[in-house]
């Protein structure tokens, strides 16, 4: 196929992925060690699906999931953060080139690669781009948006680092190696 960068699978992954991204915004799990804080499940899921389906799917899920999610939940869209979500999705997806998740490989090396990618893109996204866009679009005070971006970023990096890695590892476990299934008496 010519349009390989946007295959049917990518389109469907983006569409259904965004639907889950949106639903997960409504579900929260308490983090035991920090009171009154909940894990942002959406980005953990985004990490998994971007690592499986690549940067295009990841970027589209960030874009569609965040903008549509905002619109459906709040009736307005916070564009600066939508863009960051898209960038983060692309960043997660870029790691897929260096990983072989679909073959069930996710050892220490892969874990390191994934975490480097997620750390770098999320840092750029939340610490730099999000505040910059907030200032440019909404004219908000610089120190406020940097503090906001910083807290959101740190929290996301940590949760994706722990739970995202775990989820991808779980997924890799479910992949079966070629030619490995046989009936046992």
């Amino acid at each position: 196929m010519k349009k390989d960068w946007l295959s049917i699978r990518t389109v469907v992954a983006a569409g259904i992925g965004a639907a889950i991204f949106i639903i997960l915004r409504y579900i929260s799990i308490p983090v035991g060690f920090i009171p009154n804080t909940t894990v942002q499940l959406s980005y953990i899921f985004l990490a998994l699906i971007a690592v499986i389906y690549g940067p295009v799917a990841g970027g589209l899920i960030g874009l569609i999931g965040h903008s549509l999610g905002d619109a459906l939940q709040y009736g307005s869209v916070w564009w600066s953060w939508v863009i960051v979500s898209a960038i983060v999705g692309i960043g997660f997806g870029l790691a897929s080139r260096f990983l072989k998740i679909s073959d069930g490989e996710f050892g220490w090396k892969s874990i390191a690669v994934f975490n480097v990618f997620q750390l770098v893109t999320q840092a750029i996204g939340w610490f730099l781009i999000a505040p910059a866009l907030d200032i440019a679009i909404y004219g908000e005070p610089a120190n406020k948006v940097f503090v906001q971006g910083f807290t959101a970023g740190i929290l996301d990096i940590v949760t994706v680092g722990i739970f995202g890695t775990l989820l991808i590892w779980l997924y890799a476990q479910t992949r079966t190696k070629a030619g490995s299934l046989k009936k046992e008496a």
Partner: peptide
């Protein structure tokens, strides 16, 4: 692009479905 447009359509179609499966 119609592919991206269709991705959005799939999202709208599956939000209730995902909610139900949850």
């Amino acid at each position: 692009s119609y592919r991206i447009a269709y991705a959005v359509s799939i999202t709208l179609r599956y939000i209730p479905d995902v909610q139900r499966s949850y």
